[in-house]
Design a protein around this nucleic acid. Structure first.
Lengths: 234, 234
DNA sequence: CTGTTTCAATCAATCGATTGACTAATTCGA
DNA sequence: TCGAATTAGTCAATCGATTGATTGAAACAG
């Protein structure tokens, strides 16, 4: 049982249930395709609770946006801070930088694919990419840009460029895309591999592949040889 | 004016207008969020034409799926066939393979980002990834798997693995993700770069970045040194 | 004439939002 | 301490508007 400052206000559970249902339904179906009745039923609350707690459907959507930003901030961005610190400590030591990069990539792969809740976040953010709403700036400023800037700094350090060099930013986009591809294109990959679901072993294989690819893009040598590379490096 | 085999059957224009409107609206809003009245208005045709030509909203959606498959088959898969042929010609020559890979990646980047119509296809397919419908197998069998298998063969050849080796498939997923990331995460990248839109110069910069990244992942040396790499390759 | 298209109208179903009644917890003055 | 008043929250019911679908008559073109 939680010990600190627990004030179970009565409506909090209803709010949380609605926001969670909103994350699932909005992310999968899109804003307009989700009926308020479906939200209420999925949350196990009464229809009127939406208007009461959030002022309406759009207010609930904004609340879901806030949850996505908060959860990603708590579970993704700490690793980003760690990356910045570790990069400073590594300095010009490329072997150390390789270790820093590998740990970061592996952490991010685990965070993006190992957490059962992350696909919901990814789907929600993806909707805002293809059909931006008023929530897009909130998501971008809250989570996308901090992440992107940190990876840009990594790419810049590895390639000997400034972190705001356009080439660093584009390389960061490539690196992030490599990871997110496994969260976005999950359905076709499962079919392609003949898998039913991601398992720890399969996630480890994905992580190995992504780490090897990221280090290659960054032109950093892996610490231990766990890649299946037979390609020559002249 | 087109010259060849033009048989402007009367209903064809209405059908085409509806399918095109469906591609735009379904891709941006999702199936359930699009009203038949919105489809008819966007297509500039009467509401009753949907039932007349497609039997209903779902029939129109299937027709849109067919259009997506057909257009991608015509504009993306030819390069896939070319890749297979060129790989056979390159054989074990890694320098030749590098040239083949670079040409393929550059072609795909141009095809995915240089065509104004492609974002519509990407958005539509993306919807089927996160919320699959009966159209998902059509898209997967028609365009996703052929593309994926070709890139898997490329990854396998570069890494000395079988094309159906899980590591080849996962690496192919990484390579495709590198390209598609610029089509999917277009909005945040534009904001990150301070761009308003993709221009030919910017697309060239993206292509250079993706080609460099892909060749690095494949452990192939670029034919000419146009990369910004300062990283050592021991 | 035949196939295509528009148009207005209508159907049952569902949409988001609102209402007033009801319950339960909290607050307050004496 | 007690009981009334207040507040927060939930509930079923209902509102007007819109949904996808369908119809039949009229207009259109080949």
């Amino acid at each position: 049982m939680p010990s600190q400052a627990e004030t179970p206000v009565r409506g909090d559970d209803t709010r949380a249930q609605l926001i969670d249902a909103g994350l699932r339904l909005f992310g999968q179906m899109g804003y307009q395709a989700v009926a308020t009745r479906a939200l209420a039923q999925a949350a196990g609350v009464n229809l009127a609770a939406i208007a009461y707690h959030f002022g309406g459907k759009s207010g609930l959507y904004e609340a879901v946006t806030g949850l996505v930003v908060a959860e990603i901030r708590d579970e993704i961005l700490p690793a980003v801070t760690t990356l910045s610190d570790a990069m400073g400590a590594a300095g010009a030591d490329r072997a150390a930088l390789a270790g820093v990069a590998e740990r970061f990539i592996r952490t991010q792969v685990a965070a993006f694919l190992g957490n059962a809740r992350r696909p919901l976040h990814v789907a929600f953010v993806l909707r805002e990419y293809t059909a931006p709403t008023a929530s897009f700036p909130v998501l971008y400023d809250g989570v996308v840009e901090p992440m992107h800037k940190a990876v840009s700094a990594l790419a810049g350090a590895a390639h000997g460029l400034a972190s705001d060099d356009p080439r660093s930013i584009l390389t960061a986009h490539v690196l992030i895309g490599q990871i997110v591809a496994f969260a976005i294109a999950r359905a076709p990959l499962l079919r392609r591999m003949g898998w039913q679901d991601y398992t720890p072993e399969r996630l480890a294989a994905i992580a190995d592949t992504v780490v090897a690819a990221a280090l290659a893009v960054l032109r950093l040598s892996p610490g231990r040889a766990d890649m299946a590379s037979t390609g020559a490096c002249p």
